[in-house]
């Protein structure tokens, strides 16, 4: 996955009899424990509200109540919230990629005196808890009129995602040989030219990782989204359930449908970009 020594399976490992059975039982139990709540979610999102109080653990939806999804779309303003979430995530991702590539390049390839302390400072940002900025930013945004605008979400999302993104970019840059750039310098190319023509194409896999990780963190963020935004037209996706809890608190089926709608993009992204996500998550931890 992240090292050249990646093996497909353990050499010469074959289990049989008792250990094999134990292995199958343990793994099945684990998978059930991890996935059952989600299966329950999708199952009950297709059932009527009355079924929630029955005695069944799972129930075959017969017929499936797709009306729940229709209700969710209509009453929870899903298209609007979905679009807002998408816009906030997209702008954040562009900011994150631009800043982390520019800083990553200056911090690994260029020579200047404050390079090391600056790098350490940015990396320290990884330790700072994002919600320690909740109160002060609320006040600052309130004073500057940023409250109830997308900038109130985009700016902190981008800032807190920069350290890990830059870490991924610099780690990747260190494995890229400098020969191409040295030749380009002799040919009289400028630094911005080099970044656009040489570095960006080489960095594609790392940028994909950074973008996917950024998407997941922006898409899934909740606390700031409900603290900084209280105008209906600007709300993002997590707020959909709050709409339902207020107005239709007994329509459990539709509430579950909303939850399902929110999680589908994440699952899709994961299945499409499994390798990028694995790389992103293991980037920091394995090297130590």
């Amino acid at each position: 996955m992240s090292s050249p020594n990646t093996r497909d399976s353990v050499p010469g490992a074959k289990m049989s009899g008792g250990p094999r059975l134990l292995f199958v039982v343990l793994m099945t139990a684990l998978v059930v424990a991890e996935l059952f709540p989600l299966i329950w979610l999708f199952d009950f999102s297709l059932l009527g509200s009355g079924d929630f109080f029955g005695s069944d653990i799972l129930k075959w939806p017969n017929p499936p109540k797709w009306q729940n999804y229709v209700d969710a779309f209509r009453n929870a303003h899903i298209p609007l919230l979905f679009g807002n979430s998408l816009l906030v995530s997209a702008v954040s991702i562009v900011l994150i990629v631009a800043c982390s590539v520019a800083m990553g390049y200056a911090l690994t390839r260029m020579h200047w005196r404050w390079r090391k302390p600056t790098l350490a400072l940015v990396m320290a940002g990884m330790i700072i808890p994002i919600y320690s900025t909740l109160l002060p930013n609320f006040m600052v945004f309130n004073e500057t009129g940023l409250l109830n605008s997308y900038f109130a979400l985009i700016l902190p999302y981008a800032a807190f995602q920069i350290p890990i993104s830059m870490y991924i970019i610099t780690g990747f840059l260190e494995t890229v040989p400098r020969a191409l750039e040295e030749a380009a310098v002799i040919d009289g190319m400028t630094v911005p030219g080099m970044i656009f023509k040489i570095i960006l194409p080489l960095l594609k896999p790392a940028i994909a990782t950074v973008a996917v990780m950024a998407f997941l963190s922006c898409w899934n963020e909740f606390i700031m989204a409900v603290t900084y935004i209280d105008k209906d037209a600007l709300r993002t996706l997590p707020f959909a359930v709050v709409y339902f809890m207020g107005q239709y608190s007994s329509n459990y089926g539709a509430q579950f449908a909303v939850l399902a709608i929110i999680s589908i993009p994440s699952i899709l992204i994961y299945t499409l970009f499994t390798d990028q996500i694995n790389r992103g998550i293991t980037a920091g931890a394995v090297k130590g």
């Binding site: 709540p37 997590p238 929110i262």
Partner: peptide
């Protein structure tokens, strides 16, 4: 299968 819950919004 083991990783899927980690990818879904904490909110959900």
């Amino acid at each position: 299968c083991i990783f899927i819950p980690a990818i879904i919004s904490t909110f959900v």
